[in-house]
Computed example of a mutant assay.
Amino acid sequence: MNPSYNNIHPKFKFNRFHYNCLDLKELAYSLVKEGKDYEKSIGNFLMDWLDDSDSLIVHTSGSTGVPKAIALKKEHMVNSALATGAFFKMGPGTKALQCLSADHIAGKMMLVRAMVLGWEIDLVEPSSNPLQFTSKNYDFVAMVPMQVQASIPYLNQIGTLIIGGAPISPELKLDLNKVDTRIFETYGMTETITHIAVKELAKGPEDHNFKTLPDVVLSRDDRDCLVIEAPKVSDAVIVTNDVINLISPTEFQWLGRYDNVINSGGVKLIPEQLESKLSILIKSRFFVAGIPDAYLGQKLILVVEGNEDENQLSQDIKSLNTISKYEIPKEIFSVPQFVETASGKVNRADTLRLLNME
């Protein structure tokens, strides 16, 4: 069968049942009319996928800026599914779990992969612990880090797990070293139709480099930010705000976001790198940021969710031998609860506004 958004693979199953195009349209209508909210999201996406248009509208997460609507070609979404299937060797009959919301691109693409590649996909309500009510084994599952953390006791039910949507903390990586599942951290965005590069979480020394999927070529601009040429999933060259160390045209190390870089007295600090070092001390959610300062230009601060003993935390940070004097926050602030985007990511800018810092 020629893979196409006009065709449903004959091996495709949804919740144990085969569906062709006509059956799937009826299912979609039923989910929209009678389903729970997460099922309505599935139904709405399926109706969009099965209509006569060659593209559909999706929304970015808003974690790095204002959420926006963008049009994606269905042909490109099919190509993304094929690349994932080829890279992970997941062909017809692959058993997959849909535990991400179909409101966002990652959830939509799990369905596309199933329809295009002939997977047998089961739907569960998106939650922080999607495996707790099933004993079934799955070949392929996609989760966000929060779900992975809660699912560690059940991860032996998964053959291959991909993690995206947010960085994986060092503590979670250590926990995952004890799991037999093949686990991959992914790099991508809505504009690249989810991942265009992956990094396997090894059981031994960590490999910091992401490697691309087929037909993706990388470069960097004069800001040291990643530039992506992936003609099978995007007509345009994508210039990102991700600061990287480029290893080769198909391999890179992610360092952080250019728009988060702090210039404090002429010293450039990458928050994501510093946050990784601080994570051994701070168990609640936190981030570092730069705020205007008359002397330094930007002053490094630490913002922690919940109630923290700020004086004690400051002393603990100063005792770390992994950070330089420039990486010690000048001030520490506690916030009862961080502001989040619609997809559950921390909205740093809006959280800073709670402190009247931006």
Rank of each mutant, 00 (worst) to 15 (best):
I280R: 07
N79I: 04
Q273D: 01
D122I: 07
P271H: 09
K74N: 05
R348N: 02
H9W: 06
L213W: 00
M47K: 13
M1C: 06
L50H: 05
E310C: 14
I162D: 10
G164Q: 08
L161T: 07
N6P: 00
V243C: 04
D207E: 13
I244A: 00
E120R: 10
N177V: 00
M47R: 15
N307K: 15
N321S: 13
S80P: 06
G204M: 07
D103Y: 08
T250I: 13
M90F: 07
T322N: 02
A349V: 14
F210T: 05
D235A: 14
L300T: 07
G62T: 03
F287C: 04
S169I: 01
S128Y: 11
V179Q: 14
P231V: 07
I121M: 12
L296G: 12
S128L: 15
M115P: 03
V288L: 02
L354A: 09
P167I: 06
S319P: 01
D37L: 09
E34C: 01
K74F: 04
H59V: 09
R16Y: 09
G188E: 00
P145G: 03
K74V: 00
V58H: 02
N6A: 12
E171V: 10
D52L: 05
K211M: 09
I8N: 05
L274Y: 13
L354G: 10
K277I: 01
T134M: 02
P249F: 02
A166R: 00
K277A: 08
K268Y: 10
M189V: 08
R113N: 04
A69S: 13
K283W: 00
G256Q: 04
Q315G: 01
P145L: 04
E305D: 00
L27T: 07
G344M: 06
E327L: 11
M115L: 13
L355R: 13
A83R: 04
V216M: 02
V144D: 00
S30N: 13
K299Q: 15
P153K: 07
A142T: 13
Q157F: 04
K13Y: 07
E340T: 14
L296D: 07
C99M: 12
L320E: 07
K13T: 06
P67N: 07
L123R: 14
L218R: 05
P67I: 06
P271K: 12
D316C: 13
E305M: 08
S343Y: 03
S128K: 13
S41Y: 11
G297C: 09
T351P: 07
L354P: 08
Q315S: 10
L352G: 12
L131M: 12
A106E: 04
P336K: 12
M77I: 02
L100I: 10
V227A: 03
A349T: 15
M90S: 14
N177D: 15
N321A: 14
L24N: 11
V304N: 02
S101G: 09
G65F: 05
I121D: 00
V116L: 08
